[in-house]
Design a protein around this nucleic acid. Structure first.
Lengths: 214, 214
DNA sequence: TTGTTAACTTAACATTGTTAATGTATATAT
DNA sequence: ATATATACATTAACAATGTTAAGTTAACAA
């Protein structure tokens, strides 16, 4: 029994309801294990109603990722208040890892799951926006450190540096998320692994005198 | 029309046939996109025949991973002939990355896909065997470098070092495999990213005089 | 010859994502 | 006030999937 003509706000609200329910289920049991019918049941609608708001399951997943990317960027934004570029870069890394490890299934959806390529055209987020684009945030802080002249002489490509910094933290976090339960490896403490990775990266990227100053 | 009573060798052969066909398909189109019927068709059997050799799709996947872990260890074994521990460690990293990037879907199955925990008990491979256990190979070479006294004074935990080295290369490779197609990031060349990561890690892990010697 | 059984196939099931067909209550037009 | 159109929702249905149950066939043992 549909009360007709929802306002835009109401429709947005239902969209959010679907997204939240879906994320909850995806996050606790994995994307493929969750059915459209199940998501629908959770919010008291029929499965097909979801298709009035999302083209298909993948589009729903994409929307969830969009909101999670925004959540990540919002969290990392708090580092902007740190004046020293180097301290800011380290804080960004720590914040990123904290997000990854406290929302492992979000992180899996965002960075570890096979997907149709992310495309700024198809996203509700704005690329190169400091409030919404976490990669842009990283690039900015790396650029600030670069502009201070802290990086070694042979490091000139800000994108390359940013991607290497990203990969280092992503490596630790993604191994933790995907392999921590395995009996094959006797894992060192995750905090120790994160700390060592940051230390090693700083040693490898920065000029010696900058490191000694700290 | 079943000619009865296969020998053990024949049954092993059919198992291998299934594994090879399944891997081929998994690797080219992803695990979930491939159906049991399709695998069966490829080798001229019916889908249900596969269940005579593997409990379910996941067990089949596990067997494939086992053979791929062995393939990785076998590939990395070629580095054993390098006398210098440091050069050996670098070669191991390069070999690992080459494997990951030339078999991205294998790699995805092995290290990026959610799985029931790997357990030495349940594997056909032997843990801590230099021929079969790639992590053990890494640990060994890290230990050799450690024994030479090449690592910085503050680095004492071989497992922690090994896991950090692993995470660095895994980070680059897994981002490449999962995100390279995304339009959001303007990716630097993958070779440059691998090279910089190795350089940075060596700078961060090794004593200064060792690095200058090279 | 007659069972027995291993190897294999066909049928069948429950579940999935998704589309088509249908209903229903409201908003608008008359 | 009545009719019509339409937005919102549901139920039915489809093709495809992993998997199980129920045959079928051929080799061997008695």
């Amino acid at each position: 029994m549909p009360p007709k003509q929802k306002t835009d706000a109401e429709r947005q609200q239902l969209r959010a309801l679907i997204i939240d329910a879906a994320r909850d289920l995806f996050v606790s049991r994995g994307v493929e294990a969750v059915t459209m019918r199940e998501i629908a049941k959770r919010i008291g609608y029929s499965a097909t109603s979801i298709y009035l708001h999302f083209a298909d399951k993948d589009a729903l997943l994409r929307s969830i990722c969009d909101t999670d990317f925004l959540a990540l960027a919002t969290k990392l934004k708090t580092t902007f208040q740190i004046a020293d570029p180097l301290a800011r870069m380290l804080a960004l890394g720590r914040g990123y890892a904290a997000f990854a490890l406290s929302h492992p299934n979000h992180y899996r959806l965002m960075f570890m799951t096979k997907h149709t390529p992310y495309d700024p055209e198809l996203s509700s987020l704005h690329q190169n926006n400091a409030e919404q684009d976490a990669y842009f945030q990283l690039k900015m802080v790396v650029k600030d450190v670069y502009d201070e002249g802290y990086f070694r002489e042979d490091l000139k490509d800000v994108d390359l540096i940013a991607q290497t910094v990203w990969a280092s933290t992503h490596g630790v976090c993604s191994l933790q998320i995907n392999m921590a339960e395995d009996k094959w490896i006797h894992w060192a403490d995750i905090e120790a692994r994160l700390q060592l990775m940051q230390t090693v990266m700083m040693r490898g990227l920065l000029k010696q005198d900058i490191r000694e100053e700290k």
